[in-house]
Amino acid sequence: MNLFRLAGDMTHLVSVVVLLLKIHTIKSCAGVSLKTQELYALVFAARYLDLFVHFVSLYNTVMKLVFLASSFTIVWYMRRHKIVRRTYDKEHDTFRHHFIVLPCLVLGLLLNEKFTFREVMWAFSIYLEAVAILPQLVLLQRTRNIDNLTAQYVFFLGAYRVLYIFNWIYRYFTEPHFVHWISWIAGIVQTLLYGDFFYYYILSWKNNVKLELPA
């Protein structure tokens, strides 16, 4: 475990906690894409299949449980909670996320580290995570006044992947034959997708103006 990876995991944790707190306290999911939340729940479900069969460390197990619980809780809030569901921006959250699940599944079948169910599911989850933010970014472009918590959620979600890239660089130079092309390429693609969001987010923060993403 290196500092970059720990910082990355903590930033990822902060992003889901920020979102869960926002939804739980103000009972609103305005500006939040249900599709991105569903994709993330699927990412964790597909990636953490080995949760009970392969013990890495207490930290690893606890974090997996937290990510699984938080992502499914957020989806539950947005679908089932009588107050929160009414604040869901259904008519603007129209990204056809089914169109990205299938290609990621096919890619997982073609490009994986080992052709076993668990490894295919793992690769699928890596590819899916790379594009899971798309519905949320599209929704942000359509949302007029983006509330701070949602913007912070997306920012931390992007920041965690940037930190993971530093983690991979560090591990590449400190651990012999630490090579994970699948994670590396998908992780870089994922980070690039946040590019313009980061640009406008930092600009709005610097000029102290409301975040606006150009459509």
């Binding site: 080995d50 392969h54 890495v56 974090m63």
Partner: peptide, 10 residues
């Protein structure tokens, strides 16, 4: 080692 062929990252 076992952890080598498994994914130790989240």
């Amino acid at each position: 080692s076992a952890s080598q062929d498994h994914h130790d990252e989240l």
